[in-house]
Design a protein around this nucleic acid. Structure first.
Lengths: 149, 149
DNA sequence: GCTAATTCTTGACAGTGTAAAGAATTGGTC
DNA sequence: GACCAATTCTTTACACTGTCAAGAATTAGC
């Protein structure tokens, strides 16, 4: 499998930022690094991870970096129901599996492979470009620790 | 199609509340009525609609009613990315079509018909009960009024 | 090194949703 | 109709997510 397209290292990120017309800063590289190291993290967790790497960074700079990079397709923003926005570095077409009991969220590869991987019956005049799929269920951990509670 | 299972009127809601072990109160009936009258409304809009009907209601009572009813399957809670939670009275298996430009959100009937209407390739040990699908695109209004902005 | 544009820091703010304690209401029973 | 226990509503306060704005610092290009 050709993963190099989707797992950027620091150099690739710098190039991607420049290609998007964004400046390359230590903060943005560190934010990307944190997203890569801890997929599905929320903004606050990324903020803490970046502080471990850089020492200090403002909350606003983290939000700016996350928004700027997700708007340009360098990272991907996902927002499961009942949770704050989460971020991940994989930008290929894949979906998510969420636990109703805990906040666990994992990736699922798309069975089709290319976006939009589903076609709606009626598009109602919309120009559809993506089908976001979230599977809901109970994760193995919660199942084994008494799923009925 | 047997839609009577899914489109409750006030009496049905009272029965559904009792069946769920919840008390029947004017506030809850009014909240359900508001959800039914304005699908995809956020909590604040529902709060305002209920105040038109009842006169006064506390914000907390609205949240309580929405949470209690959605937990028991009487209404359904959806949470599109970048927006607060929205509520709808249809609890059958259908999906949503969201505009990236404005906040427009409409229903799409499920092509398959029964939940979960999709099967993940690998369930990773999860006990999956629902596949939530959100189609993202540009709505006809935004397309005609210059979709590039 | 210098300049213009972008980005980061700092502080404040709006909106969503929850927590807790006491008052009011509901449902069941007498 | 009255009473009681349980639930629900009101009120107030709070945590959290995310944004806005102004000035300082950094980046990229020359």
């Amino acid at each position: 499998m050709n993963q190099s397209e989707f797992s950027h290292d620091q150099l690739d990120v710098a190039e991607a930022l420049r290609a998007a017309g964004l400046q390359v800063t230590a903060q943005r590289l560190a934010v990307y690094h944190a997203v890569q190291a801890t997929p599905h993290a929320i903004a606050d967790e990324i903020c803490q991870a970046v502080r471990l790497e850089l020492g200090v960074i403002s909350r606003q700079a983290v939000y700016d970096a996350l928004n700027a990079m997700s708007e340009h397709g360098i990272i991907r923003r996902i927002q499961p129901a009942g949770s704050a926005a989460r971020y991940e570095h994989r930008v290929d077409n894949h979906h998510h599996l969420a636990c109703r009991n805990c906040d666990n969220l994992i990736d699922i590869d798309c069975a089709i492979g290319e976006a939009p991987c589903l076609v709606a019956e009626h598009d109602h005049g919309y120009q559809i470009d993506e089908a976001e799929v979230t599977y809901w269920g109970i994760c193995p951990d919660c199942l084994s620790h008494g799923g009925s509670s």
